[in-house]
Amino acid sequence: MVAASNKKSARAASDKAPSNSGIQDLPGLYREMLLIRRFEERAGQMYGMGLIGGFCHLYIGQEAVVVGMKAATQEGDQMITAYRDHGHMLAMGLDPKGVMAELTGREGGLSRGKGGSMHMFSVEKNFFGGHGIVGAQVPLGTGLAFANAYRGNGAVSIAYFGDGASNQGQVYESFNMAELWRLPVIYVIENNHYAMGTSVERSSAMPDLHRRGESFAIPGRKVDGMDVLSVREAALDALEHCRSGKGPIILEMMTYRYRGHSMSDPAKYRTQEEVQKVRAEQDPIDRARARLLAENLIDEAGLKEIDREVRAIVAEAAEFAQTSPEPDAAELYTDILR
């Protein structure tokens, strides 16, 4: 357990200094991260009120990862992830009302109430889910890349998975074929340090997850996943790598989730001090706000205006999610076969 104690001090940190590239886009990225944060806080609150059922996995703390990745993509690039997916859908531009109404299991939900928190998709926005089985999205995302290569359309697939999924066998089956066939896929490991309650140190013989592609000759890079511009810069490089025909690449995003694994997780496997330290020192939204002010990209009034807008969007989504009717009983038997 020596490794474990060494790693503790490096929680959510990374090797590189924060990026400065793309700083002109920071106001928009800040707004998107804030939307995810406020949306997830409201989802947590609604879960507590019994309006959302089942499993509900919040993305609070990890917002910079998906927002930074999305900022670097082009039209046609696809994303796929597991069940901690609300943030990904908001980042892909899906209507917050449709996302929230899916959480409440209503007709107005993105899957018309039949998927729930873990299963949402948008063909229009190139978001392919929303998958409930840990690791399954990795070969699926590799298959999206296979289709891109087959069609020669220049698009890149981004497959997100966590430190927990990185121990699933199918991840390595995917790595092998992706490199063998030079598929344009970015494997984004969102390392939030805990696979449910098991820390990376307790689950992984070799905890440097960005090196997990080495035996397949897939390059990997460790990224400060709490700094949205660093994520964006790494994503631009990775997308260029894929688009130039060099095959897959791994980005290990060092990040942190503030809430439990799901709403029902009391998170007794880590200390409150650990959580508070990350929140105080590395919060991606606080960091972005500080940069915005320091660089004079926005003033306090501007920040307040963003905050007001975001709160209004979330309030509208929450209202819609409670007033949209439950799906018609006839929906039980639709969408089984085409």
């Binding site: 696809q78 796929i80 392919f128 399954a136 990795v138 070969p139 699926l140 995302g141 590799t142 298959g143 999206l144 890349a145 296979f146 289709a147 891109n148 087959y150 697939s157 066998g169 199918q170 089956e173 995917s174 092998n176 074929m177 063998l180 066939w181």
Partner: peptide, 26 residues
């Protein structure tokens, strides 16, 4: 070989890749 694809012995992986390609419309 683009349309008749030899895979490694990796059923879990290539079945998932096949489904992913199908989700993308192939």
């Amino acid at each position: 070989p683009k349309r008749v694809v030899d895979t490694p012995i990796t059923e879990h992986g290539f079945a998932g890749i096949g489904v992913g390609a199908a989700l993308a419309g192939l």
